[in-house]
Write a protein that binds this DNA or RNA. Structure first.
Lengths: 344, 344
DNA sequence: ACCGGGAGTTGAAGCGCTTCAACAGATCTC
DNA sequence: GAGATCTGTTGAAGCGCTTCAACTCCCGGT
């Protein structure tokens, strides 16, 4: 392995000069800089990450914790992870992938050892185990998701309450008076992961204001479960004309079942979803939907965490106060929603 | 931050002793070891990762490169990634997530800087850009997937050729004489990612032996595309009674379309898939399938790469020669395949 | 002509850990 | 009972980088 000292010798300068060329923290004359840069290229030099981390006490690594739960929709997680990794590279950082296996200990270990100098936490629960750690650690952290107590925390998420309201607005405008929400798996609510609840709360809230009736049913993604849920919905509320789905896995089965039952979309039933754009556009009936902006969330999380990291390095970290960043929902109308059928 | 020196002072021993307690590379008497361990616990000591990497020139980090292609099935990738991260932890390693954004440079950077001391490459193409690097680097690497020239490489993958053969066997046993393969998106074949081709080759090979007719059509996951593909299949080969699907996204649309066309599964058409177990079990008709063992692949990749890393550290790395590890396909019969209908 | 000061460069002191060589004392061996 | 062999422990030398303080020029101001 080529070392900085060898580069210095090759370029006929001191080690410090090479270091300053690399970091740009001191002005170096153009001829010197160019000479050093040439030596670096010719020797194929790569600064040693460990030595760097040791000397500067910054690892240039962001830890990304994503507890994997089988009932969470993986593509969204994945998209966020990819966005995080990509954005991190733009800030000259790499991403360390932590799963939930180790529990909250993982965060302690990674931060305690100086392996990572910032953290992004996904799949946040309302009373998340990792919060005490996050509140205490000096390293910047950003949550993707919203716990119940957010004091002192920086969070990024889709504004699911607004999303719920937006869905009701849309259906109500089209004249629907009875709507059903096909939600996430029951386990998601029990675990009290905030987002699912927030959506339903948003739906209920606006529905009350507008005098719309709402029926909410959790539903896991299996065909059987969707069939059961749908049957119960039309059983309890035969007048239902609008359905909001917040469970990507349930979408195709739902559309397929409606077809089988002879209920046309959108003539008899309007269906809308809360899901990634790609999913909404690719279904058998392109779906009116509120997008889950996975990429933006990942990107924003990194930007926020880096801002805090830089501030911590520079002046006071209070310069970048904690904040809650709720992305406004974007509704895209596609073919699956239409005017409510006139009751006969 | 607590340092090793502080632990040593607190325990009344030298720094080296603490280090040896931590690494277990020298025998330490039980009383001393326990005293040190207590100090470690009491002070909440975490060894500094950078210093460790510098002194030992091992980072205990595995780089996982996964170029993200939108046409690849993300859940499988994700499952592999999770398995890799989990297994890596069992070997006291962490995982660094690299996306395709940077291209092959990422590998050079990460290995050159000593950030990672091993690599796992996913989504391998037949003539992969990263191969020259992998062949040259002294760090152990394992590919998940099979390039065209595997000399000197260690690879892990499902045996897709055998998978193709297995599918034909199964259908032929049930009396099917004309089968269709609904494949991956055309882009997947163009890019010459090996696995899709290998499956089709396996299918063709065995079909020839058994005198079965085969029609293969690429197909992206959209409903439209599946509809078109299916129409063309029955148009060209009206006698088709068996379908093999190798594109997770196409499964539900396919089943839905068959239902609409009044073709019963499995009475009129037998359908089988190459996909993760979870997917096969959760569809509207539980599918007879060959599993894509994502977890095993991730786990095995880590085991292999660690074996090489340990060997490199110990004696000669030739002790663990490169090898190709093709997992044998496992067929699970569910409800979607049955005897071929008697031709009328 | 002299001094203050910025620009450019450097030597040296660590950063916190691993590991080698060395040593003291206990245990064998004949 | 003397030398050989273990066992447990230690001091010190780095690992490759960053960064501080210091030093040398050279320029402009007076």
């Amino acid at each position: 392995m080529v070392t900085l000292a060898e580069v210095a010798r090759h370029a006929g300068v001191s080690a410090s000069t090479v270091s300053y060329v690399l970091s740009g923290k001191r002005t170096i004359s153009t001829p010197t800089r160019e000479r050093v840069e040439r030596s670096i290229r010719e020797l194929g030099y790569h600064p040693n990450a460990g030595a760097r981390a040791l000397a500067s006490s910054k690892s240039n690594i962001i830890a990304l914790m994503m507890p994997l739960r089988t009932d969470m929709y993986l593509p969204v997680m994945m998209e966020i992870a990819i966005a995080v990794a990509t954005t991190a590279r733009e800030h000259a950082h790499d991403v360390l992938l932590l799963t939930g296996q180790e529990g909250p200990e993982a965060a302690r270990r990674v931060v305690g050892s100086g392996l990572a100098d910032a953290m992004i936490l996904m799949d946040v629960e309302l009373e998340d185990q990792r919060l005490p750690l996050v509140r205490v650690t000096p390293r910047p952290a950003v949550l993707i998701g919203l716990p119940s107590d957010t004091t002192g925390l920086t969070c990024v998420d889709l504004d699911f309450a607004a999303t719920g309201r937006r869905c009701v607005d849309h259906l109500a405008e089209l004249g629907h008076r009875e709507i059903a929400v096909v939600g996430e798996a029951a386990a998601v609510y029990e675990r009290r992961t905030g987002f699912a609840e927030r959506t339903v709360r948003g739906v209920r809230e606006r529905a009350e204001e507008l005098g719309t009736r709402v029926l909410h049913r959790p539903c896991d993604g299996s065909y059987e479960s969707v069939a059961g849920t749908l049957a119960r919905i039309f059983d309890e509320r035969p007048g239902t004309t609008g359905i909001v789905v917040q469970n990507e896995a349930a979408i195709e089965p739902l559309l397929s079942l409606l077809r089988q039952q002879g209920r046309a979309v959108p003539e008899d039933v309007s269906v809308m979803a809360v899901c990634p754009e790609q999913v909404a556009a690719g279904t058998s009936v392109p779906l009116t939907s509120v997008a889950i902006p996975a990429q933006e969330m990942g990107r924003l999380a990194v930007e926020l965490v880096m801002a805090r990291a830089d501030a911590g390095a520079g002046r006071d970290q209070a310069a970048v106060p904690p904040r809650i960043e709720l992305l406004p929902p974007t509704l895209t109308v596609r073919g699956s929603t239409g005017p409510a059928p006139t009751p006969r």
